[in-house]
């Protein structure tokens, strides 16, 4: 899905626009400003509308700080696990043929297109006190629902396909010739992966990890079902935003939102940078 601005041999290369072109461009300017940019501007304006001191006080409120901590912690736990899974899954479906492969790919992709509410619900039905496993686990002193563990688990579910989705098309397109060659030279599996495959997929891998990270940090629906909303304990940053909004603390809500918006901007800047490096680095 990447664009390759560096590829000049391609036919439909960008040209200087004519009169109709400028019309379309003007339309793009206006609509992008209204639809995409304005929400960002609003968040920053609202977050700082009571001045910098009020903003800092809002950000440093203990419950908001804890929410930031919990959100970062969740990303730190979830993203590496889903990177490992994504690489394994991509390697499996692009390097081997086996019966049931299409079904496996579909199962990998399910969390991507399912409503996050359903994601929360299925975990509640499994680990809840009236769920399938919840009572058994509770008898053994293991509590999952309404703890950070439940937040980790639903986040793992929701973002499990992100890395694999980026890697599979790329690894399919690249084929396995390089790896076959390395194999014939006597390299073992890990050497092949580390020295041959990884350099080829590193940009897509980072891109997938970046998307995965963004989604973990921002997940709302699934986490809202399993968190229990204990202030300063199981409230992630997106939940804290809703809580502050409902506490009549609109500037607090926007201050919290601004930290997530800043992360979002960082994400798209990094993504754009990755694409540029990736486009030149791949050829």
């Amino acid at each position: 899905m990447q664009t390759n601005p560096a590829d000049a041999s391609r036919a439909g290369s960008p040209t200087r626009p004519g009169r109709a072109g400028w019309g379309l461009i003007a339309l793009t300017y206006v609509s992008s400003a209204l639809i995409l940019a304005m929400p960002l501007v609003l968040i920053v304006t609202m977050a700082f509308r009571n001045g910098l001191d009020a903003y800092l006080a809002n950000i440093l409120a203990p419950d908001t700080l804890h929410a930031i901590f919990l959100t970062v912690l969740t990303a730190i736990v979830v993203v590496p696990i889903n990177i490992v899974f994504g690489v394994c899954a991509a390697w499996l479906v692009t390097r081997y043929d086996f019966p049931g492969k299409r079904l496996l790919i579909t199962i990998i992709e399910i969390p991507f297109s399912i409503s996050p509410i359903v994601a929360g619900v299925i975990y509640l039905f499994l680990y809840g006190g009236q769920g399938l496993l919840g009572p058994v686990l509770a008898d053994n002193g293991i509590k999952i629902m309404f703890t950070v563990w439940a937040i980790f688990l639903v986040s793992l579910f929701v973002t499990s396909p992100f890395v694999a989705r980026e890697l599979i098309p790329l690894m399919q397109q690249q084929g396995g010739e390089d790896e076959e060659a390395a194999l014939s030279l006597g390299a073992n599996g890990f050497q092949i992966f580390w020295n041959v495959t990884l350099p080829n997929i590193k940009w897509a891998l980072l891109y997938g990890a970046l998307l995965c990270n963004a989604r973990v940090i921002g997940e709302f629906g699934a986490v809202s079902v399993v968190s229990g909303a204990i202030r300063g304990q199981t409230n992630t940053l997106p939940l804290q935003i809703e809580l502050l909004f409902n506490d009549f603390n609109v500037s607090g809500a926007f201050a919290a939102a601004s930290t997530l918006a800043a992360l979002a901007v960082l994400t798209i800047v990094l993504k754009a940078a990755l694409e540029r490096v990736g486009a030149t680095g791949r050829r």
Binding site: L124, G128, G129, G131, A138, A229, I230
Partner: peptide, 19 residues
């Protein structure tokens, strides 16, 4: 610690394991 939501919803969450 505090957790707040609709009263009946909260009762349900306690049954599901909200400690």
């Amino acid at each position: 610690n505090q957790s707040h939501a609709g009263s009946s919803k909260q009762a349900g969450l306690v049954l599901e394991g909200l400690a």
